[in-house]
Design a binder for these strands. Structure first.
Lengths: 250, 250
DNA sequence: AGTGGCAAAATTGTCGGACAGTCGGATTAT
DNA sequence: ATAATCCGACTGTCCGACAATTTTGCCACT
């Protein structure tokens, strides 16, 4: 049944190098913003070829642990952008063909909680971001793509306002999955737009006046509404942009 | 205020190659299990050097889109392992110094939902995994490290039993964060172990008899209990390596 | 036809060395 | 000081190579 010995995983040099650097970073020996030695120098220190170092660096760069500002040459330690992480997650979910039902259940768990905390803790700036997102939906309701983007923006703003980064990062991937699904469904339901708008307004109002219970309740209604167009088929994400964007300045 | 031009993000060849392959994968043109062409061949097709292809491959490998079985040479398309993805997320959260409070709130949102769905949908096998995890906690309660691992295993089993991969993948990173926090706190509260055990038993029982409401309620109690040892400080993750403290440079 | 075995062909992991295009910093002119 | 300029340090790519394995094609044997 179980083999007596499990294969000792061999560690290619590039992986060892990557791990070595990663350890320094998570242990905070290399702190955010610090500059890394040059590739040549790293190659010398590790006693490997620059090509090898290069592959290692690629790993860390992808994971968002190191990177460089636009136009900068020197690498520096960065913290993984939530955006990058969440797009990885959502892509993984999409590749696993999760159903809308699964997505919906997760949203039902997270979003109302986020709304509640948002009502409790939102800052004026966050509130403003919220109202702006809602306004954008109202304005762009006609344009399906823009409307969907506005919905995502709204959820993102609520999560941000919750002041809870764990909640926020957990919720972000759901948005990315919601977008394609919502795009297909928003046109199928005549009153979808009106209901979304109403919900957004109620939620925003509740968060404005710091009414936690009401914020949660309306968010629940809002999410529940999505279930109308729900469908058991896997969510399709095919046609959109590949994820790995670099950090952008807006 | 808004710049007229946005910085044109440069696309290094290795990134373009990586994106090209990624697109094929997410579009399902390359399906899970398919073998990729050899590095040399890819280099020829893309018209770049093998080293460049190699860096691109490294990206995809890290993202879990491609990989190879132990001892295999040829690359094949794989689906990102939830485990890998969630450890990335939790590392990101840890690097952002999230507080236990944030973690706790997120757990409070996810775990009861997972428990409820688990009660509704658990298979016999999943139920067994649950009882085994609970049993393990009971047995290892004395050994802090093992006890913590058992707690994590229990949560994981519940999430798995929920039959919802989104929920499951959203919850997984939280476990990884919980572990170090729990390790510190479990010893501070005398009755912590007893209460955990009781909760696990109640939850398991509720899930066994498919009592959704009870499963949720007990999970809420269970999570709420964790708050006792709660603390506003950032969660400390494996501050293992004593290295790096020494020389400053800077 | 199915199997086992074996040598040749193909591949990966690493290494060295090169070169053009840039970025960072020091240098010098305003 | 500030701005224009120059040079060295680096990164992105490419070539070419080689040992260690894997994969594959082929042939003999049951």
């Amino acid at each position: 049944m179980t083999d007596l010995f499990e294969p000792l995983d061999d560690h290619p040099a590039y992986r060892q190098v990557a791990n070595a650097i990663e350890r320094k970073i998570v242990a905070r020996a290399l702190r955010t913003g610090d500059h890394l030695p040059s590739e040549t120098d790293l190659a010398r220190q590790f006693g490997v070829n620059r090509s090898t170092v290069r592959e290692a660096i690629r790993e860390l760069e992808i994971q968002g642990l190191i990177g460089r500002g636009r136009g900068e040459k020197r690498l520096k330690v960065t913290r993984p952008e939530p955006q990058r992480v969440s797009s990885d997650v959502s892509r993984a979910l999409a590749l696993h063909d999760v159903t809308f039902q699964e997505l919906w259940e997760a949203m039902m768990a997270l979003e109302p909680a986020a709304a509640e905390y948002a009502a409790a803790r939102r800052t004026p700036a966050e509130l403003q971001a919220l109202t702006r997102a809602a306004a954008r939906f109202r304005r762009d309701a006609g344009d399906t793509a823009a409307a969907v983007a506005a919905v995502v923006e709204f959820f993102t703003a609520v999560a941000k306002a919750s002041g809870n980064r764990v909640l926020s990062l957990s919720q972000a991937p759901l948005n990315l999955l919601l977008a394609p699904a919502l795009t297909q469904m928003i046109d199928r339901l005549a009153q979808a737009r009106r209901r979304i708008q109403e919900a957004q307004e109620q939620i925003t109002a509740a968060i404005r006046r710091k009414d936690r219970a009401e914020a949660r309740t309306w968010m629940e209604k809002h999410i529940r509404d999505f279930k109308r167009g729900f469908d058991l088929r896997p969510i399709l994400t095919a046609a959109d942009e590949p994820s790995g964007r670099r950090k952008g300045g807006r």
